[in-house]
Design a protein around this nucleic acid. Structure first.
Lengths: 245, 245
DNA sequence: CAGTGGTCTAGACCACGAA
DNA sequence: TCGTGGTCTAGACCACTGT
C-alpha cells in the first residue's frame, strides 16, 4: 500500500489537474490540510514537496501555497540561425541584459577554448514574462573575436541577437553545437528564476564556431523545466541515407 | 545564516567532491551522522535528500547510504542519422528490447499523428552498463508504415537502428525533430532506472518523417540527468546567414 | 499584529537487506 | 536476527508577509 503522503499527493494532484482547485487559488494552510487528511504537518509537507517538484504548486513563505498558473511553454529552437528570435515582441517578454568584461576562468575558458585570464565580454540575460522570471542566459564573446557595444535589452531570450551582431561585425558562423543536460538548479538559480530547488532545469551549453573552427560565441542557458522545452529539427539530405550503412 | 541542513549539505558535498569520502563508500548511518552533527535524524535526512538530488549519494533501504560512483556520461547525439549508433559495443552496453503491438492512444497517437486505436509497434529499450540501468526508450512505428520483425537486443540505446531498418524496408527519412524537456521522473521511471524521484531526467521526444511529411517513427527517451547529455551540432551553409536579417 | 510556511526536535514503528 | 533507511507524530520556535 502506498504511504500516506503519496496518497495525499495523488489526491491533491487530481484536484489540481481536474480544475477543482483553480489555477492561482490559494490552498488551505498546511495545518488545515494536515488535519483534514488526519496526518501531521511534516507528513503533509512531504506531499507538497512532490507537487512543487512537479510544478503544480508554488510555495510562498509567509503567504501560503498556491496552485501554479499554467504557463506558456517557451521553446528554445536550436540549430543555429534558423531561429526566429523576434519572439520577444510577440510574447510580451522582457529581456534585461547586463554587460560585463571578465577574465575567462574554468568553465568559461573551456567553453570558449581560450586561455585562462583572457578577456571576454559576458552578457547576462534575464527574461521575464509578465514580471515572472522565465530564463537565465549567459553569453560569452572573446574580445579577441569582437568587441561589441554593451546591450541593455534584447529581443531574444537566448542571445541569438549576439550572433546577428557578430555577423554585422564580419564574423561568419559556420557551426553551432548545443549540449543539453537536465539537473536541479543551484540555490542561486532557483532564487533568480523564482522557482524551487526541487524543479528540474534544462541547461543548454552552446558554442558557435566560424569556418576556421574558432569559437566565436559561447552560451550557458538555464530554463526551468516546467516553462521551457528545446526543439531541434534536422532535415536530412537523401544522400546521407547511404552513409549510415 | 544558512540553516543546519544546508550547512551539513555543504560539508558532506565538500567531503565527497574532494574525495575524502571515496566513490562507492558507505556513509555512516543516518543516526550516527545526525549525532555527529548534533541534529535530529529528520534534519540530517534533509541534507541527504539534497545530495541525492545532485546525484552524489545513493540511498538503499535496508543497506545504507553510499557515495555514488562517477559514471561515464553517455551522449545522445541528435540530428538524425549522422549518429554513430554502434556505441553499445564500445561501451559494454546491454540493450534489452521488448516488442509489443499496441493501439495508439493519447500521447502515442499525437506523437505519430495517427488515429487513436490504429495499430503501432512499440519497442521498449532498457539499456544498462555494468548491470546498472542507464536509459529507457520507447520507439513507436505505425504498422501502416512498416511491420518490422520483433527485436530482442540492439546496438543503439536510442533506437537509431530502427531508423536503419526502416531504410532497409524502403522508408526514406527526410527530417527528424527532437523535443527536449527537463523534469523529475515518475515513480515508475525512477524504479526502472534505479534512480531517485529527486534526480532530474532529460526527456527526448523524437519524430522522424519522410519526404511527404508522414511520421514514420516516434520515440520517447528518458535519460537520468547525472548520466546523460544530449548533443546537437548544426553546420550552417553560408547562404543561411543572409536569410536572418 | 496574526497567519503563514521554514526549520527542527526526540522520539516511534515499519519494511527491507544481509548474515 | 539486527542494522539500515522509510515513514510518521506532536509538538516547538523562527522568519516572512500583509494588515
Amino acid at each position: 500500500m502506498a504511504s500516506h503522503y503519496q496518497e495525499i499527493t495523488d489526491d491533491l494532484r487530481q484536484l489540481i489537474v481536474t480544475g477543482s482547485l483553480a489555477p492561482g487559488e490559494q490552498l488551505p494552510s498546511e495545518a488545515r490540510l494536515a488535519s483534514r487528511y488526519g496526518v501531521s504537518v511534516p507528513t503533509l509537507r512531504l506531499a507538497l514537496d512532490v507537487l512543487q517538484g512537479e510544478g503544480l504548486v508554488e510555495k510562498h513563505q509567509g503567504r501560503g501555497n498556491f496552485v501554479r498558473r499554467p504557463l506558456n511553454r517557451m521553446s528554445y529552437e536550436g540549430g543555429g540561425l534558423r531561429t526566429d528570435y523576434r519572439a520577444a515582441a510577440r510574447l510580451a517578454l522582457d529581456v534585461i541584459v547586463s554587460t560585463h568584461e571578465i577574465r575567462a576562468q574554468g568553465r568559461v575558458a573551456a567553453l570558449l577554448q581560450v586561455r585562462k585570464g583572457s578577456w571576454v565580454t559576458e552578457y547576462t540575460y534575464l527574461t521575464s514574462q509578465e514580471r515572472s522570471p522565465h530564463s537565465l542566459a549567459r553569453i560569452y564573446v572573446p574580445q579577441s573575436v569582437a568587441t561589441l557595444p554593451p546591450m541593455e535589452t534584447s529581443r531574444s531570450p537566448w542571445g541569438h541577437d549576439i550572433q546577428d551582431r557578430l555577423a554585422e561585425a564580419g564574423v561568419q558562423l559556420a557551426s553551432v553545437t548545443d549540449r543539453l543536460v537536465a539537473r536541479l538548479p543551484t540555490a542561486d538559480e532557483a532564487r533568480r528564476l523564482r522557482t524551487s530547488t526541487k524543479t528540474a532545469v534544462l541547461e543548454i551549453e552552446r558554442t558557435s564556431a566560424d569556418a576556421a573552427g574558432r569559437v566565436v560565441e559561447g552560451a550557458v542557458l538555464v530554463l526551468p523545466g516546467h516553462r521551457a522545452e528545446a526543439l531541434f529539427t534536422t532535415r536530412l539530405p537523401v544522400s546521407d541515407l547511404e552513409g549510415v550503412r
